[in-house]
Amino acid sequence: MAIHHTELETPPGREPLPESERPKLETLREQLQPLKDLPGSSIEALYAAQELFSYVPPEAITLIAEELRIPESQVFGVVTFYTMFSLEPQPPYVLRVCRDLSCHLAGAPKLIGALEKELGVPRGHTSPDGRFTVEVVSCLGLCDKQPALLVNLDQHGPVMPDDVPDLLGDLRNGAG
């Protein structure tokens, strides 16, 4: 079945999905089929999109709205409500570092500084090699591992500034 909505204009300020990525929309459509029987599953639908594209492109929002029969505005509202969804392409490794009280007392600011220095970019930016970004986030429920961070969904902690080169080295070598 053709996905006619992808012919629509991209919302202002957002890049359309590159031509090479478009076939994945068909994959997404297939993955959305079982969710049609599970009312309220827009979060799962958005995870599916994000896993395919590394972010939620505008075309995926349209497609999810169409397949799950909910307003596009509602899907967009959900994407922007939750911090784990991104409207911009994400690098393969998203490092979420906790900035809340326990981790702060255990040295989170120095850890964040060390990560920024080692990657050569401030938080929220993608490293020059295109593989990493550091997000500073709320408590991860890993306070026993203070200061803690997630590499995608993998738990790490305590991570001291001195541990940063090894941690990133392992990820660069694909051992993470």
Partner: peptide
């Protein structure tokens, strides 16, 4: 949904 800073019991 445990997310209260300083809390990891449910995890």
């Amino acid at each position: 949904d445990e997310s209260e800073p300083g809390t990891y019991v449910n995890r």
